[in-house]
Design a protein around this nucleic acid. Structure first.
Length: 850
RNA sequence: GGCCCCGUGGCGGAAUUGGUAGACGCAAACGACUUAAAAUCGUUCGCCCUACGGGCGUGCCGGUUCAAGUCCGGCCGGGGCUACCA
């Protein structure tokens, strides 16, 4: 009988703070760079200091902490740091809303959130903590940017940008989702601005091909990046183009991946922004009106855009390179200026868009490819066999592509070409709370001059007025006025700041040498620790942060900062945390913590007593009030219970439904285990017993290592509970009971660290668990003496037999046939065949006796 | 529209990768302890039937195999990414 008096009860809060203090006082998780142990770097995506941690953070950091603690116990020298992705717009909004300076607001949030994270008992090296908004961090970033400039990896150009009218800033292509700003949700506008770019396209091919050498990344993330980089191979060739105001030798280059349809080409289409379109609009009012129409359509109405292809017939004509036919040239709203050459050749029989367009404007549709599924009167877009194509008739599309490219290259009118969808990364933001871009513009001639490294850091002014419209740095009375580092003449600072993804593109490297004052990090340290062995975070960063960081690492290598090119060897993407949302009778959302369960099972709201109805399980969000404050959970259940529940319920890559009942279950198990261990604290542990329970324990140790390495934490927990259940089943008198329980304490320690340290100490161990090795198992005990296997008749399981594990095939066959239950089934049947596989199955194939 | 992933009890999910489907947990029901409740412990828990037995069963239809949740083909349903990239 368990004694459940208060004295004997597990005191979560005392125990958790006791161990947190011990870990802290002993620098338990401080990483020693000089250790001989094999290095292992585990990192979770660092948080934005928004003010409080949420359950998603708890999930993320728990996942990483299990890896860190497990690897440490396995003998690795583990680097597990934490820091703050501290620049960003919410700080400015807070400044506008409540007058706080962004820096103050941010550092206060960091202090609060650091305290919250410490309640989780994470095995972090807090000495390496960084905040990206601190000059000690971003001064290195500014220096790095200057090196990028020097190496041609950063440049400035005027370009059409995605303008977010709510955030009042430019967005990168990656930050535009469905034509809307990724944070604000506002429809993105087009604007022409001078912008700084990082040359991501320089490594486009590497960024793509290296994905094939990254087995420890999720397939779907790799697929997303592949699509985003969007490599295609084709040819750029030039039409002779003629028309009013054109030179006699004017050319129109177009890019196509389907040059095999060249003989079916019957017109060409220009993008509205194409120079020839613009030129025409200067003199042609109708053309001008059409371009106007195209630009107002915007990007947000893709559906409408897709539905209707519109064109404007220009007075230009192009000459077909092989038939010499003169073909019309249109301006089309569906041609993308920034891809390829901004103009296309159209073979309407073999392209959906060209087909729609040709149908609408009555242009010739000439099939030149045929194959399975070809239907007259419909576009046939697959590759096939060429017809109506003179000398290329009968070739497959791929053969024809090779030959026609060679032919056009010989004629000197075209060249095989690889194109990418990936654009260079625009990093300028018209915001205050970001890293200043270290260049100035000389007043006398407007020249853009990089600041010299010894003038870094360029820091932000801390007396900024947010009440005015526009970029606060630009509005500041004095900040931007400076002198040219080359000539000493008056100059104006760049008032744009970096996209905040800039900071997160290299922070993982800074952690390897976080207090280095002279450079971002010592190359030897970065090379020792990087790439990050295990990186963990949300899948929403698949094409933003994760691609930028990959580019940045290559850029740093290019500039000699380090020798590695991929930042993250292993990547794990966790699912979201969902929770049921509740509404009261007034149709208002209700916090779960404000709900009372009535005796009849119905729900009502605390205070108002209104009836509450349960809605769908959806992503936690403040607006739906279906949020849980992790610190409430730590208070009432403890961090251990929260960690255990989060890991035991769902596989970590799937969405998790937060449930109070599930948390209760975790809490119950923690208390059961605590009580069970209290009953054996004085008993000796014999770790070399050979019985059923001992074997189960050895099997559990073996199985769990596999589970943890593969992030199957829910299975790990299930295994541990199985072992616990079996131990309780056989009882305290079993020779292996104490061994089994002690093993559970060890195996559970990465997941439930405070409780396990306490129990380990209760069991009389002088060395704390965080300094102890992972338990080992004896191979010989992994195999049970007997095994129960199923016996099938005609593929249907009709019974089971328990036989020695090492039984041979013939004996197994006999055992199965002799089993009473089975024999009954065989009565009156003819046995045709017996499949007997030791350790797995017996299947007896029978037919009715003749 | 294109590409990819996924459909297993009331629920979250297991199933050694073709070999006893439903581990482990949650919820539920019943029982024990208790003046009572909580806590704890025990039993039951895929569906159906004429229940110590038997039939059916992993979205649906078909196929391969001694054997299919697992492999193949076709549907249906859900999710993700992408959205005129020539």
């Amino acid at each position: 009988m368990s004694d459940t008096s208060d004295n004997d009860r597990y005191n979560i809060r005392a125990t958790e703070s006791k161990w947190q203090k011990i870990w802290n006082d002993n620098n338990a998780f401080k990483t020693d760079d000089d250790s001989d142990k094999e290095p292992f770097y585990v990192l979770e995506m660092f948080p934005y200091p928004s003010g409080a941690i949420h359950v998603g953070h708890v999930r993320n950091y728990t996942l990483g902490d299990v890896v860190a603690r497990y690897k440490r116990a396995k003998g690795y020298n583990v680097l597990h740091p934490m820091g703050w992705d501290a620049f960003g717009l919410p700080a400015e909004n807070a400044a506008i809303e409540r007058g706080a300076q962004p820096a103050t607001w941010t550092y206060e949030n960091i202090a609060v959130m650091r305290g919250q994270l410490k309640l989780m008992g994470l095995s972090l090296d807090w000495d390496r903590e960084i905040a990206t908004c601190h000059p000690d961090y971003f001064k290195h970033e500014q220096a790095m940017f200057l090196d990028f400039l020097k190496n041609g990896l950063a440049y400035q150009k005027e370009s059409t940008v995605n303008w977010d009218p709510v955030e009042n800033t430019v967005l990168a292509n990656e930050q535009v989702v469905d034509g809307k700003g990724w944070r604000s949700g506002a429809a993105v506008e087009r604007k022409n601005l001078k912008q700084w770019f990082l040359k991501t396209t320089q490594f486009a091919d590497e960024l793509l091909s290296e994905l094939d050498n990254m087995p420890d990344w999720p397939e779907r993330v790799k697929t997303m990046q592949k699509h985003w980089i969007g490599k295609s191979e084709g040819i750029t060739f030039s039409f002779d183009i003629s028309g009013p105001d054109l030179a006699s030798d004017e050319k129109l280059p177009v890019y196509t991946t389907r040059i095999d349809t060249i003989m079916g080409t019957s017109f060409a289409v220009l993008a509205p922004e194409h120079p020839l379109s613009l030129k025409l609009a200067e003199t042609d009012k109708d053309a001008e009106a059409f371009l106007e129409e195209c630009s107002t359509m915007g990007t947000s109405e893709e559906a409408i855009e897709r539905a209707e292809k519109k064109g404007f017939k220009t007075p230009y004509t192009v000459r077909h390179p092989f038939t010499n036919e003169d073909m019309p040239v249109y301006i089309g709203n569906f041609v993308i200026y920034t891809y390829g050459t901004g103009a296309v050749k159209s073979a309407p029989a073999h392209d959906e868009r060209d087909f729609d367009f040709a149908t609408k404007y009555g242009l010739p549709i000439r099939p030149v490819i045929t194959g399975a599924g070809f239907e007259d009167g419909k576009p046939f877009t697959s590759k096939g066999t060429l017809v109506n194509s003179d000398e290329w008739d009968g070739l497959t599309s791929d053969e024809a592509i090779t030959k026609i490219i060679a032919c056009m290259e010989k004629m000197g009118i075209g060249e095989g070409q690889t194109n990418y969808r990936l654009r260079d990364w625009g990093v300028s933001r018209q915001r205050y709370w970001g890293c200043p871009i270290p260049v100035v513009y000389r007043t006398s001639d407007g020249a853009c001059v990089p600041v010299s490294k010894d003038q870094l850091p360029i820091t932000l002014p801390d007396d900024v007025d947010f009440s005015q419209h526009g970029n606060p740095l630009d509005n500041h009375p004095t900040w931007k006025h400076t002198t040219c580092p080359e000539t000493g003449e008056p100059a104006i600072r760049e008032t744009d700041t970096f996209d905040t993804f800039f900071e997160s593109s290299w922070y993982f490297a800074r952690y390897t040498d976080p207090r280095n004052e002279n450079k971002p990090f010592e190359a030897s340290k970065a090379n020792k620790w990087l790439p990050v062995d295990q990186y963990i975070g949300g899948v929403e960063h698949a094409v933003m942060h994760l691609l930028y960081a990959r580019f940045f690492t290559r850029a740093m290598k290019h500039c000699g900062y380090l020798d590695i090119k991929e930042p993250f060897k292993g990547l794990y993407t966790q699912g979201m945390v969902n929770h049921r949302a509740y509404k009261n009778a007034d149709d208002k959302w209700v916090f779960p913590s404000d709900i009372i369960k009535n005796d009849d099972g119905s729900l009502s709201e605390k205070g108002s007593n209104l009836k509450v109805t349960a809605g769908a399980v959806i992503k936690m969000s403040k607006s739906k009030k279906n949020v849980i404050d992790p610190t409430d959970i730590f208070e009432s259940y403890g961090a251990d219970a929260a960690r255990l529940f989060i890991l035991s319920d769902s596989p970590p890559d799937r969405d998790l439904e937060w449930s109070e009942a599930g948390l209760d279950g975790a809490w119950r198990f923690i208390n059961k285990l605590y009580r069970s261990v209290q009953d054996i604290v004085d008993k000796p542990v014999d770790n070399d017993v050979d019985n059923e329970l001992a074997r189960k324990a050895h099997q559990t140790i073996s199985g769990i290592s596999d589970d943890i390495e593969n992030f199957h934490y829910n299975k790990s927990v299930a295994r541990i509970r199985e072992l616990y259940n079996m131990a309780e089943q056989v009882g305290m008198d079993d020779d292996a009971y104490t061994y089994a329980l002690q093993t559970i304490v060890q195996l559970l320690s990465p997941i439930v660290p405070h409780l396990c340290e306490e129990l380990w100490e209760n069991l009389g161990h002088k060395t704390p668990l965080y300094l102890s090795d992972w338990p080992t198992f004896n191979e010989a005990y992994l195999i049970d003496e007997n095994v129960t296997i199923g016996v099938q008749i005609n593929g249907k399981v009709r019974g089971t037999i328990t036989v020695p594990t090492d039984i041979d095939k013939d004996t197994l066959e006999k055992e199965a046939m002799n089993d009473d239950h089975i024999a009954k089934y065989l009565n009156g049947k003819t046995v045709r065949k017996i499949i007997a596989i030791p350790g797995k199955i017996v299947n007896i194939v029978v037919s009715d006796a003749a």
